[in-house]
Amino acid sequence: MANIFIYPSNSLILYDLVERFGHKPLAVMQEIKKRVTTAGIDSPPLNITPEDPKIGLKYAAVEVPAGVRGRMSLLDPLLEAAEAAILVEDAPIGFGCMGCQRTSELVGFLIRAKRIPILELDYPTSDDAAENFVYQISEFLNGLGDGKEAKNE
């Protein structure tokens, strides 16, 4: 079982597909859950505090908007743990989104720079394309083995 980074990082469809094929999806919902269930932090709605954009300085300098850096602090553990990734381009908002295009651009770059197996797909716009979309994901995930092999590819 490999840790699969998905993007958009809150896509329920991608999350479900990764899980169905026996791998562990890395999604932002897990990180948000950790925050909102951690006692002692009171910074609603996401329990992101002004300290988080400072953690995001790991990925982007101070001249980058705080909202991008705050998002990066949320994604940091997922990027660190990723052993493979599925990235879907041009997805409609309902499929999942992080709200900020600059964050999407930075995450895309960082995940590619990790040199892990990556499947990049365009969002399907027809039934045939949708079937092919799911097929490609299944092939990709089945080919990853137990994760260790994926890491070494």
Binding site: P50, E51, P53, A66
Partner: peptide
């Protein structure tokens, strides 16, 4: 707005 919750200042 955009980004206030990720900036951590929505409470402010």
């Amino acid at each position: 707005s955009c980004g206030s919750e990720y900036t951590g200042i929505q409470g402010e």
